[in-house]
Nucleic acid binder design. Structure first.
Lengths: 331, 331
DNA sequence: CTGAAAGCGCTTACAG
DNA sequence: CTGAAAGCGCTTACAG
């Protein structure tokens, strides 16, 4: 039932090679026959089969983006950045969700192996360096986003700087006991944020007290949920003495933390992380990261790598975040 | 460089047919040769090429989900539902973002034509019935989610009932002038919600006043943004007289509306729509829709349709939403 | 249990 | 400007 290149060729009295050429704008085809072929293809509803093209040509004009939990609210911005680049290239993009629970590496390998796409954007996957190195044997273009590796193009954030900025802001306002609402303890970005937090403390000649690093119990989505933030904040408020201020590792958790404070009628200044669009509306001070630009850059890197797999030298970009002050820290 | 089925066959001293059989668990293969082949494939890092398999077998074990703006926060739940079904089937799922700005139909057709997947899940696309009918000529399994059509399997919500529930709840509490914060006026779900709103008014023998249907100016993401909600709420508060209560078409907009009220220090009871996870934490009364179940059902429908394209009769499921009361409506 | 061979729907040198 | 033909990496009757 679906038409093939043969149907079109027969109808137009040309060889399939000619039909192929008009659909690829490759080789020169007489204008009149080109028009005839386009016309016939339209009438018959013909469109080249993606798999046949991919198999025959090695070029798929298709890239895949692998991301954990789609709920990363800032993901929308990354996506827009990617689409900003792709719009002019006639390349399709699809997104594959990598589940947190299972072994991430296996899921990623599973996709790469099957040769679905010309290249892959790995976003916020936070694989270990060792795992990332294993990706090299697939010899497929890969571009990292919100992750760093010396072996791949990457666009990442300076999480240490973010942690430092948030913490030193609170310190400068005179707060001394600053709790850090954390998450899964082996999270790479969180580790860096804690480093920044410690550096700020050190600058103020304050001791690092690890009992101030606090997480909730809920661990779905790596503890990046309102509930986990709520639980963590309850612990904070049970502290003796109660801390002076909070640095929270994500806006979503901060929402939970705010509610915990409301419920206990006890309000501590809080700075969080991500600058989701909702944060402006709940008045949350937070660390902003340029997600759109990241998506844009990472996609550009990938295209470059697809076009010249080896000629381009590895490009590692690091973006510095920005502190945004809103009422939540001005209590 | 990448290995093919021929490399494995040669190494194992068998034909490619045999290798193919072990990778498909089809046909019987002597246990010892099966093991040998698996072993060799592992050593050489062989994995079947998705495109070659798809082209040769017609079966791709791949489905695509087409969705507008990924930012639909409730999308996570739908995705989990879909994954719940797929987990046992060894079928891969990817997500393609359909941009709102451009002609949606063309984008969808572009994907369907290329025969990427065994079937497609169209979620919240809200294409017109006429557009949906055009999809039939691709003869490809399609399952609708948050949309209805007599021509395709679908799982949808009763938006009219949702509008009715929210409105009549406010009416029962004694409020009489109820504003509806809307969005893009041609939105199909919004049209139904307004119908429900009107039905509730009628039951209370109140006139329908279309000046109470209010939208913001911002129209990105079809007006489903905090900003649009903020703008709309400003208009509401400028009303003369100011309405007694608000029915808001989405939680995200309600966040903007709440801020507008805070800024004006004027608090009206509000019920909104979606029950995002954040809503619990900001205390928003809202209409809940069973997103996980929907994702689950729609995916089941799709698999059924893929396996028996014609034998299964079209299944249209409609879910009734549920009102959740929280502080925002209890002012 | 296994192999030879045709076929899936394209692309792309090569030759003219 | 155009065609014949080989090839991309698989699957699947068919035959044994």
């Amino acid at each position: 039932m679906p038409k093939t290149i043969y149907d079109i060729a027969k109808e137009a009295n040309v060889s399939i090679a000619t039909v192929s050429r008009v659909f690829n704008n490759s080789g020169s085809v007489k204008e009149s026959t080109r028009e005839k072929i386009i016309q016939i293809a339209d009438d018959l509803g013909y469109h080249p089969h993606a798999y046949a093209q991919g198999l025959a040509s090695k070029r798929k004009n298709y890239i895949m983006m692998l991301v954990p939990v789609m709920s990363n609210y800032f993901f929308t911005e990354i996506l827009k950045g990617a689409q900003g680049v792709l719009a002019k290239h006639d390349i399709e993009l699809s997104i594959v969700n990598i589940k947190q629970e299972l072994h991430k590496l296996e899921q990623v390998e599973q996709i790469l192996k099957r040769k679905w796409a010309d290249g892959y954007l790995l976003a916020s996957l936070h694989l270990s360096e060792a795992d990332l190195q294993k990706m090299e044997r697939f010899h497929v273009p890969i571009s990292l986003l919100d992750d760093y590796s010396p072996c791949f193009d990457s666009v990442s954030f300076d999480n240490e700087a973010g942690g430092y900025m948030a913490t030193s802001y609170l310190l400068k306002k005179g707060f001394r006991r600053i709790a850090f609402i954390s998450g899964k303890s082996d999270s790479i970005p969180l580790t860096y944020r804690v480093s920044g937090y410690r550096r700020a403390l050190k600058e103020f000649e304050l001791p690092y007290d690890e009992t101030l690093i606090i997480s909730g119990e809920s661990m779905d989505r790596d503890g990046f949920t309102e509930r986990a933030g709520y639980e963590a904040m309850q612990k904070v408020l049970n502290g003796d003495p109660v801390p002076d201020a909070i640095f929270c590792s994500s806006d979503i958790k901060a929402l939970g933390a705010l509610k915990a404070m409301d419920d206990r009628k006890r309000h501590l200044p809080i700075v969080s992380y991500d600058n989701l669009s909702i944060s402006e509306y709940v008045g949350l001070s937070t660390i902003h990261q340029p997600m759109y630009d990241m998506g844009f850059q990472a996609t550009k890197n990938l295209l470059k790598r697809i076009n010249k797999p080896d000629n381009v030298k590895i490009c590692n970009q690091i973006h510095t975040p920005r502190l945004i002050i809103r009422p939540s820290s001005e209590v």
